[in-house]
Design a protein around this nucleic acid. Structure first.
Length: 728
DNA sequence: CACCCTCGAGTTCA
DNA sequence: CTCGAGGGTG
């Protein structure tokens, strides 16, 4: 087997650069001078090695990489070669702000004067060269190897926004307009959805989709296929970013070039900016790093160019790239890895969820090993087989999502996933809870270890009783096969002597490494050969103290802890405020329950049904016997109405996003309630105000879009006192 | 009845 | 964060 790809970025980059240079040299020798310097085998090995490195480190793969084109970059059997009037350079890359500053500082030194920087988005698309003669489009060609490209004029003419004839005046005898052809993100997602639906391969990224679409041939196709091809082409767009073969343009700057091209009716980007300092250019890079998805096309970086054209001439170019421009590459958001297997997990409600077990891979800053596949329909829809190389991204930069398989890399050894018929945890037969439901569930709610574990974890969670020391790890420790809790009914009966004997397997890197006792530790062992004396660990003492505190927490938290279907923090709050005690809720009819604001017939039914199950009632009774307070002290009884306090925020729905100094998210929401407001998690046009702190994302954008008032985090305290007045 | 909003559930890693 | 589904409103 081949040597593993370097796991260190700098090492990978150094090797990729060395390989690229060598491959281009050999290719040049072969095609231009007809000389063979190494065997085909050696050459192929080098290309494969580079491909492997680029697959693991996609930011190293650009359209100028030798892996992106075959041979001399032109497949002349399909498209006629076109020699560009002026060579199309590629750009040097930097991968960090530090590297960028270094480059900019050096450029300023070389220029020997203050430099203005034209900053623009680096579109993840396909470079194109449009040749206009006396204002008329004569040829459109791909970049190819920079010198010779492919003639794709026929297809390019079908792209909207590319004029066949330039408007305005002052067109030179000959000018080459350089631009980028791309798939807008929305259209790209639609395309991939369609591809999946018709069982065809999905495109790994918009660049591949653009390239694939542009390099289609109409020859020998049916009318239906031709229509499909034209429809795809009509979804492509182009933006221009340079000129070639025009020695004396009547403008002095790169930005002037864009204005001129715009006046000729060519599509220019609305997002470029001229910055006068390096710091401002860095600001531009950072801004779009955070707002990568707020433009219509994918961005894989930022291009920074010296604006002054006179300086371009002075700075010149290296053999491959100009010295007056640089590409800043963002870390990739999409990578490829191997799907090792698909396993099935059981959630707290018994739902069986298949998840992908992946060859660990670095995406957007963290190593991903697993990704959910939701249900069997999704597995089928994505078309992935076990053993496939798959395309992976982080949705919203957090949750890993598998987009689809890379079909070309299949070798026939891949197997289809078959949904199990039995619960992997307890062996019960999985079945849909309703006829025709997609989701399969384990019916063994009371005894399935996975469900008990999930419910106990939920009880400890922030939206439940918020018990410190009762999270995922403790839930595993406390339930079979490790601990004594066969259901949550015994949670508040736990004693120290129940905890100390608990042993759990130690897992490191997916392997069992022995066992440990989380609730017991050595308290005394004078000498090595002496028998050790054991006592409870601080975790055990903390857990018991926290459980004690939980017995008197708010009624709504206790209701959430019952794990009634559809009853989360919001519905539980409404029920608790209206009825005041669990006894009153249990005594209420379905109609009475459904009359509560925010509770409809389905939730009311779920609550009623819950009390009909013996082991559910046992939970309530045993918790009560252990001292749990199932009532709000001082509550006058059912019908007391909703818990809306009068205050400065009365009648206002408030969304809190980002971090707010001095508050936890929970605390901020409590404060909103205390001031009479209603906290919510999503912004809509009915939202009264959005409190925005550092780190806010899409919610802030949405608030601006909808014209919802925005309260800066530092004025939150003031806002609680005076309401919307603070915005004046 | 059709919409829009909101809630709940599942989810990954450090 | 995203999805699907419940609840409320016009």
């Amino acid at each position: 087997m081949a040597e593993p790809v370097p796991s260190d970025f700098d090492a990978a980059r150094a090797e990729a650069e060395a390989l690229t240079e060598r491959i281009l040299e050999l290719r040049d020798a072969y095609y231009e001078r007809d000389t063979t310097l190494v065997s085909d085998l050696e050459y192929d090995a080098m290309v494969h090695r580079l491909e492997a490195i680029e697959a693991a480190w996609p930011q190293l793969a650009g359209q100028d990489s030798p892996t992106q084109s075959v041979g001399g970059g032109v497949d002349s059997t399909l498209f006629a070669p076109v020699v560009h009037a002026e060579r199309m350079y590629s750009l040097d890359n930097v991968f960090s702000i530090d590297e960028f500053r270094e480059w900019a500082a050096k450029t300023e030194r070389d220029a020997d004067e203050a430099v203005s920087w034209l900053c623009e988005l680096k579109i993840d698309g396909l470079a194109i060269n449009l040749r206009y003669e006396r204002g008329a489009l004569t040829t459109a060609a791909t970049r190819g190897d920079g010198t010779t490209g492919e003639d794709v004029t026929e297809n390019v003419l079908r792209i909207q926004g590319i004029p066949r004839r330039l408007s305005g005046t002052g067109h030179p005898e000959l000018v080459e307009v350089r631009g980028e052809i791309f798939f807008p993100v929305a259209a790209f997602n639609e395309l991939n959805a369609e591809q999946t639906e018709s069982g065809e391969r999905v495109f790994a990224n918009p660049r591949n989709a653009a390239s694939g679409s542009l390099r289609q041939k109409a020859d020998g196709k049916s009318q239906k296929e031709i229509d499909l091809m034209r429809r795809r082409l009509s979804r492509l767009r182009m933006l221009v970013h340079g000129i070639g073969a025009w020695p004396d343009p009547p403008v002095a700057t790169q930005s002037g070039v864009y204005e001129l091209l715009g006046s000729w009716g060519l599509p220019t980007s609305p997002n470029y900016r001229v910055e006068t300092t390096i710091d401002d250019a860095v600001g531009y890079i950072e801004h779009y790093g955070e707002h990568r998805h707020s433009v219509e096309h994918e961005i894989d970086g930022i291009v920074v160019k010296v604006d002054d054209l006179a300086l371009h001439a002075r700075l010149g170019a290296t053999s491959r790239a100009p010295r007056w421009a640089i590409a800043f590459k963002y870390p990739p958001e999409q990578v490829q890895t191997i799907l090792r297997g698909i396993e099935v997990g059981i959630g707290r409600t018994g739902r069986a969820t298949p998840y992908a077990v992946l060859e660990p891979i670095l995406v957007a800053g963290s190593v991903v090993r697993r990704a959910t596949l939701h249900n069997q329909d999704v597995v089928r829809a994505k078309g992935v087989l076990i053993g496939d190389t798959v395309v992976l991204r982080k949705a919203g930069d957090v949750i890993p999502e598998i987009l689809g398989p890379v079909v070309e890399l299949r070798d026939g050894s891949e197997r289809e996933f078959v949904m199990p018929t039995e619960c992997p945890e307890c062996g019960a037969t999985l079945a849909p809870s309703k006829e025709g439901d997609v989701d399969l569930r384990c019916p063994n709610a009371r005894a399935c270890p996975a469900q008990v574990r999930g419910r106990i974890e939920h009880i400890g969670s922030r939206g439940g009783l918020d018990i410190e020391g009762l999270g995922e790890v403790s839930a595993i420790a406390l339930t079979p096969p490790n601990g004594p809790l066969t259901t949550e009914a015994g949670l508040f009966d736990l004693r120290l002597e129940d905890l100390t004997p608990i042993e759990v397997p130690t897992i490191r890197g997916g392997e069992v490494q022995g066992t440990e006792t989380p609730y017991r530790k050595v308290v005394r062992q004078a000498r090595k050969d002496e028998a050790a004396e054991y006592g409870p660990s601080s975790a055990a003492l903390e857990l018991l103290a926290e459980l004690e505190k939980a017995k008197t927490k708010d009624l709504w938290r206790l209701i959430v802890s019952l794990n009634i279907r559809h009853v989360g923090p919001v519905a539980a709050r409404s029920l608790a405020a209206y009825f005041g005690s669990l006894t009153a809720i249990r005594a209420a009819s379905v109609d009475e329950l459904a009359a509560v604001d925010g509770v409809g017939p389905i939730i009311a039914e779920a609550v009623g049904d819950w009390f009909d199950v013996d082991w559910h009632v046992e939970i309530v009774e045993r918790w009560a016997a252990a001292g749990v307070q199932w009532a709000t002290p001082g509550h006058p009884g059912p019908g007391a109405g909703e818990e809306t306090q009068d205050g400065p925020l009365s009648g206002l729905t408030v969304v809190v996003t980002g971090t707010i100094e001095g508050y936890t998210r929970e605390g901020a929401e409590e404060s909103v309630i205390a001031a009479g407001g209603k906290p919510s998690g999503s912004v809509s046009k009915r939202t009264g105000a959005v409190v925005v702190g550092p780190g806010a994302g899409s919610k802030e954008t949405k608030a601006i879009e909808l014209g919802v008032p925005i309260v800066p985090a530092e004025r939150f305290g003031e806002f609680l006192q005076r309401g919307l007045e603070v915005l004046g």
